[in-house]
């Protein structure tokens, strides 16, 4: 259960990225966050795990107020939030296995991690996850030898091995081709329902979002301007979020694409 209360972020430059965002996401719910570039989507999810420090407001996850935590408490809280990135954000010169195991860093001590001596249970969990996303054979390859879709799968494994209760997903498909985008989205949504995870997915592809999620939140200039089911996204709503454009085509496209999947 994630609870955002009046979350606000003003950057040092004076830009107001988020203003007074209040949102409640029950466990197991997958939410798509849509909005134009600069609407504050990335800032919002980075404020939740405090990669960006919110200016005011609070984020509470399972009763723990993350915004009030000190360094040690924050690290503990971050373990419960898996994050998936737009450019995969794998450490490219490490192997696939090391990248996946880096998701356990919050649980193991410094010297164990330095010498790559992870507990056997972590190693087994990593193998299971890699097998689940179909990359078991790649375990000892270096991350920069993988294709975009494969890298994103490794990124997903890294987030899931944390054993999180919430997934923060930042534009997972922006660097992928349309087919791979769908596969990755489907994988994320499937894994969420398998494990009962809540997820916030930043996404700019409205059609793709509509296909997979149960709830859509529209962000504009740092404020929530829409909150509803995927089918409530009407041209009028999209115009409100993104500005004037012929939206019928976008929405229709969803139906067309649905047929061939």
């Amino acid at each position: 259960m994630l609870e955002l209360q009046g979350l606000t972020k003003i950057y040092n430059t004076g830009d107001k990225a988020l203003s007074d965002v209040t949102l409640s996401i029950p466990s197991g719910q997958v939410v798509a966050l849509i909005g134009p570039s600069g609407a504050g989507k990335s800032t919002l999810i980075r404020c939740i795990n405090r990669l960006v420090q919110p200016t005011s407001g609070s984020a509470t996850i399972d009763g723990v107020n993350i915004t009030a935590l000190g360094a040690g408490g924050l690290r503990k809280a971050r373990r419960k939030m898996g994050m998936i990135f737009q450019e995969y954000a794998l450490v490219e010169r490490l192997t696939v296995m090391e990248n996946v195991l880096s998701g356990r860093l919050g649980y193991v001590g410094f010297f164990r991690s330095l010498f790559r001596k992870f507990p056997q249970s972590d190693v087994d969990a990593a193998y299971r996850l890699l097998d689940r996303v179909g990359l078991l054979e790649m375990a000892d390859k270096r991350a920069d030898a993988l294709s975009g879709g494969q890298r994103q799968r490794v990124g997903i494994c890294r987030a899931l091995i944390q054993d999180p209760s919430l997934l923060l997903v930042d534009e997972p498909t922006a660097s992928l081709d349309p087919k791979t985008s769908r596969q990755i989205m489907r994988l994320i949504v499937e894994l969420c329902s398998e494990r009962g995870l809540a997820a916030i997915i930043n996404i700019h592809d409205v059609a793709l979002a509509q296909m997979y999620v149960q709830r859509v939140v529209g962000l504009k200039l740092g404020e929530v301007v829409f909150d509803g089911g995927p089918n409530d996204l009407t041209p009028a709503v999209l115009t409100d979020i993104y500005g004037e454009e012929d939206w019928e085509a976008t929405i229709e496209k969803v139906d067309d694409e649905d047929e061939d999947t």
Partner: peptide, 17 residues
């Protein structure tokens, strides 16, 4: 569970040199 996975489970992992 695939055979490849079964072969790996329970085995220690070492970073390739």
């Amino acid at each position: 569970m695939s055979a490849a996975l079964e072969a790996k489970l329970g085995r220690a992992w070492k970073k390739p040199p």
